[in-house]
Design a protein around this nucleic acid. Structure first.
Length: 745
DNA sequence: CCACATAATCTTTTT
DNA sequence: GATTATGTGG
């Protein structure tokens, strides 16, 4: 047997170097999967339904390219969205090729990583072309908002009306679409958030540059700028990557799409794997159209469908297919499986969220009695705030759990503070780091002193650090403030020297002591203080694995998933978004109520498009389950501060009754029998709910004082049918339905 | 001029 | 129910 592949034409030399990994890696594939692996040249789109083995195809394809010597590892680019996916791919390729992934083997030469990490790698090489130096820092969401807030305040814009959060969302949206400040589309029309954002976008970019910082969107955007303005640079990369592979193609935004097209320019050997039915990041700029028009973009593309599902039982697949069939914009696939039987999908109505948590807790214990490990169970929620109830319940029951995607290590306050010390030491121009720690721990530096430094920096057009340095030298600071700030600057200079002489971990340790930061938490009596000290210790430990500040700062900027120990036997609680790509024997889908899921907000903002995305989210949720699926919906739920009653989600009515087992419900409502009945019930409920508080046009007259939930107080100007024209005290003149107003006496 | 205490405003989903 | 903006006391 051995001799046949040693002498085989297709799998040459490498097999003699690495003993066993026969072409056996191809044996595990079905016909379509094998087709996807063998179609190495030219553009290929693999439409891979949930659980059809798309990761297997991707990894085998790479292993195949390497084994057949079609390309060196360094000529292959493979991009994913999450670090986890990248890590998993690397491990699986190593396993296929029988190589230990210690980065010494050739797998280490693969360009395999997230869009962001690969873009960062390229950007570091050519940073000066966009006015940055190669050690730029990557800002997180919080830093971005702080910076925007400052800019808004400098421009005298009301930050309560135009919040940094909204501004960031708009600017990030532009970056996702590949718009630099000079290219943003005309935001024609009224005085709106878009115009404010447009006015501060150039300033925001300038500030980032001055601080030698980048945000997430910039990583791709700067790559695009470099590629467009320096075709020679683009050519080196396009010529380098003989083969490009893309995971989760349906989630690419326009910037990523353009980036890929440019890099594929020379060879056009691009293989994209994705599932239009699992596109759930539209709100973050993902364009499903990228996958829908693949054939147009890459003429002569091979399209391969993977429809055989290896994960779930027939009832689960039936439910998923039936739900997603209600969407219009899709390429269309039909999943099938050999596994005919399996338990029915259970639907459980509950009175409120605490009953839901109690119910899930009981079920988990029942599964445990059936010897199903906790690591094979997951509770999926629509929104982050819903995890709490389950956490509390599991805590009282003593069930070990983990919240996936909760507070991540590098987002913790103490870690951000400590990293800010490092950032400022390493890059004195990092104003955001400066502000974060100048008075942490308390050094008696307040608003006034900071404002003084700020205005000085603005006048001189320099960083806060340089401004302070100059002020101290010129004696502009007095007394105690001058002394403490002098000490602070002295420390920074001292640490900077240490940085080039001692290991990173030792310097950080010293920083925490010298600055008094560690002492601050040691003196703190609050219950979380000990945990924070523990985290600082962990940070120092983590630092010992990095030889350069650059490498560490890169890590902090890009690695957002915590080191979750998949080994421990715990149940997972996570959002539907975080669950994509995972699978469990038992899945609890919770909170399937109108307004919550599908989310009212998405439907208000995105209309029918939003509803379809929510439905895809339902599809993702259902297809996470291998065997046991249980969906719950509560009649009442506490949202914000008040109780809200709601109908079961319309998606429940879209699941075929023959795969469902209805669990006992109390006297409260049952789910609707069909989509039509659902609609009727929804209309009735809404009519019923709106009536008592809403106004009839007959009660309103011209001049009435009215109140609106978001616009506040106003006076009625005119009545036209069931619409009313109202002049609001703070919101201008608006035309709206009388239903949304209440009368003020 | 700074630190602490109360009050209003939120929460989708994330690399 | 928790975190940020504002006011008051030190």
């Amino acid at each position: 047997m051995k001799s046949c592949y040693i002498h085989s034409v297709t799998y040459p030399a490498i097999q003699t170097l690495n003993p066993p990994p026969a072409p056996s890696y191809l044996d595990a594939l079905n016909t379509q999967q094998a087709e996807a692996v063998h179609a190495t040249d030219g553009p290929v789109l693999v439409l891979a339904g949930a659980g059809t083995g798309k990761t297997r195809v991707l990894t085998t394809r790479i292993a195949h390219l390497l084994a057949t010597k079609k390309a060196f590892a360094s000529q292959i680019l493979a991009v994913t969205f999450t670090n986890k996916a990248a890590r998993e791919m690397r491990d699986r390729i190593a396993a296929l090729l029988g190589e230990k992934d210690d980065h010494s083997g050739f797998i280490g030469h693969l360009w395999l990583g997230t869009f962001h990490s690969i873009a960062a790698r390229i950007l570091r090489k050519h940073a000066e072309l966009v006015g940055l130096s190669s050690q730029f820092t990557i800002l997180d969401d919080d830093d971005q908002q702080r910076l925007l807030k400052q800019i808004l305040q400098e421009a005298n814009i009301d930050t309560t009306k135009f919040t940094p959060k909204v501004m960031l969302a708009i600017i990030s949206g532009w970056k996702d679409r590949g718009y630099t400040p000079d290219k943003i589309p005309n935001t024609s029309g009224s005085y709106n958030a878009g115009q404010i954002a447009a006015s501060i976008y150039p300033r925001y970019q300038a500030r980032l540059k001055a601080m030698n910082c980048c945000d997430f969107g910039d990583l791709l955007l700067h790559n695009l700028t470099i590629f467009q303005q320096h075709p020679d640079v683009l050519k080196t990369y396009a010529d380098r990557f003989h083969y490009i592979l893309v995971d989760e193609y349906q989630d690419t935004n326009t910037s990523q799409y353009l980036w890929l097209r440019l890099l594929a320019l020379s060879y056009k050997n691009i293989c994209c794997v994705g599932d239009d039915d699992q596109s759930i990041y539209g709100w973050r700029g993902a364009e499903v159209t990228n996958i829908l028009k693949f054939e147009e973009d890459y003429p002569g593309a091979t399209i391969i469908r993977l429809e055989r599902n290896y994960r779930s039982t027939a009832p689960i697949l039936k439910a998923a297919s039936a739900v997603i069939a209600h969407n219009k914009d899709r390429l269309g696939k039909t999943l099938w499986t050999d596994e005919e039987d399996g338990p029915l999908i259970r639907i459980k109505p509950v009175w409120d969220d605490s009953e839901e948590a109690r119910f899930v807790g009981e079920e988990v214990e029942a599964y445990q009695r059936d010897k199903i490990p906790l690591s094979q169970m997951a509770v999926l929620v629509r929104a982050g705030f819903m995890t709490r109830g389950f956490e509390e319940r599991f805590m009282t029951l003593g069930i070990p759990y983990r919240v996936v995607g909760g507070l991540r290590f590098y987002e913790r306050m103490e870690i951000r503070d400590a990293v800010a010390y490092l950032r400022l030491t390493y890059q004195p121009h990092d104003d955001l780091a400066f502000e974060r720690i100048i008075n942490t721990p308390k050094r008696g530096i307040g608003k006034a002193t900071l404002e003084q430094i700020h205005s000085d920096a603005r006048a001189k057009n320099c960083s806060l650090h340089s401004a302070l340095e100059a002020m101290l030298a010129s004696g502009a600071m007095k007394g105690k403030t001058a002394a403490t700030l002098g000490q602070f600057m002295h420390n920074l200079a001292h640490w900077r020297q240490l940085l080039s002489a001692e290991p990173l971990a030792a310097v950080m340790d010293k920083m925490l002591d010298d600055s008094g930061y560690r002492a601050m938490w040691q003196a703190d009596n609050s219950p979380e203080a000990s945990g924070r000290l523990e985290n600082l210790k962990e940070l120092v430990r983590a630092l010992s694995e990095y030889s350069s500040v650059d490498a560490f700062i890169e890590h902090v900027g890009l690695v957002t998933d915590g080191a979750a120990n998949a080994e421990d036997d715990m149940i997972s609680i996570m959002s539907l978004h975080a669950a994509k790509g995972l699978e469990f024997s038992c899945v609890f889908l919770t909170g399937w109520e109108e307004g919550l899921f599908p989310s009212q907000r998405t439907m208000d903002e995105q209309g029918a498009k939003g509803l379809e995305e929510e439905r895809r989210l339902a599809y993702v949720g259902i297809t996470r389950a291998r065997r046991h699926l249980c969906i719950s919906h509560a009649a009442n739920r506490r949202i914000y501060n008040q109780w809200q009653s709601s109908l079961p989600s319309r998606f429940l009515a879209e699941i075929p009754p023959d795969v469902v087992e209805e669990m006992e419900s109390g006297t409260y409502h049952r789910r609707a029998a069909s989509p039509a009945i659902f609609q009727k019930e929804l209309d009735q409920l809404l009519a019923h709910r709106v009536q008592p508080t809403s106004l009839d046009t007959s009660v309103i007259r011209k001049g009435s004082s009215v109140q609106h939930e978001t616009f506040g107080q106003g006076i009625v100007l005119a009545i036209e049918g069931d619409h009313v024209q109202v002049a609001f005290k703070h919101g201008g003149i608006k035309k709206l339905l009388a239903d949304y107003l209440t009368l003020v006496k």
